[in-house]
Amino acid sequence: MGIPRAMSMTVPFRTAPPVETDDVTIVVATRNRPDRLAETMRHHRAPVIVVDNGSDEALDAPGADVVRLDSNLGAAARNVGVERARTRYVAFADDDSYWESGSLQRAAALLQTHPRTALVAAEVRVGAEGRLDPVSAQMAAAPLGTPPGAAGPAILGFLACAVMVRRDAFLAAGGFRPRLFVYGEEALLAMDLAAAGWRLSYAPSLLVRHFPAPAGRNQRARHRLETRNRVLTALLRRPPDVIARTLAGALGSHPAALLDVARNLPWALRHRRPLPSEVEAALRRLN
């Protein structure tokens, strides 16, 4: 994988606000959406690494460290940004999201004061109306409870555009798996962090703004990838009864995805590593 610096597509970025913490690097993966990136870049309140995920034209993001990939790595492009970062903590943002003022500083403080926590997830508000994201609503319900001394309610899933991670823990867990590409890639990382003994916490005092495009994405293709990744994640980490239920669900909702699973089956079996019993028990409480 080549990652030479390249800057040729200039976008009119506005002046960024002052940096609110030196302990955090923001990693943004983007592809072919310079206008969206230009809108959110001006809100980032920490140093930014932009990973240009194989865009058709090289991207220029003034004020950011731009890494140009030769091909689209999907979610694994974030791994490149984390490897390049030199801060203890890394916050993820998409090219259509940003952390609200004060949230980066508060998130870093939570990780600092909770050394067993590898990841904190912010509340996500969607669109100009600030609609609560359904995933945030689920986290707020705290079905796993809040362990004593934890940074917030325990979670085993998250939205990648709204978390801060402990850099060393993220890298040790392997980051986002390239084979999963996109859509549902967070579940496996959450499991692996928990299996390594780390806590993952929801912190509603943190706020991320998300402005997804209203249309234009192939929803059928997305559903197929989500279904494939759900089955592959079960094959990689869950026990046989969960695998069977997940396969049955995939057959009923998107049977074409099972062709993709079959092509990836040898890889999944080679990398299968069942979860510790306490992590599996927590997952069953959620499902």
Results as ranks from 00 to 15, higher is better:
4 P>G: 11
7 M>C: 15
9 M>C: 09
11 V>G: 00
16 A>T: 00
20 E>F: 07
21 T>Y: 04
29 A>F: 08
29 A>I: 10
31 R>F: 08
33 R>M: 11
34 P>F: 11
45 R>L: 11
47 P>W: 03
52 D>H: 07
60 D>R: 11
61 A>T: 09
69 L>Q: 13
70 D>M: 14
73 L>N: 00
77 A>T: 06
81 G>C: 07
85 A>W: 00
95 D>G: 08
97 S>F: 12
99 W>R: 04
99 W>P: 04
110 L>T: 03
111 L>V: 06
114 H>R: 11
116 R>L: 14
117 T>G: 11
120 V>D: 06
121 A>P: 11
125 R>L: 15
127 G>L: 11
128 A>T: 14
136 S>K: 09
144 L>M: 13
145 G>F: 14
154 A>N: 03
166 R>D: 14
174 G>I: 01
178 P>R: 09
189 L>I: 11
191 M>Q: 12
191 M>P: 00
199 R>V: 02
200 L>S: 04
214 P>W: 06
217 R>M: 13
219 Q>L: 15
221 A>G: 08
234 A>H: 01
240 P>S: 01
245 R>N: 04
255 P>L: 01
260 D>M: 01
260 D>A: 09
263 R>A: 15
268 A>M: 13
272 R>C: 09
278 E>L: 00
283 L>K: 00
283 L>P: 05
285 R>M: 06
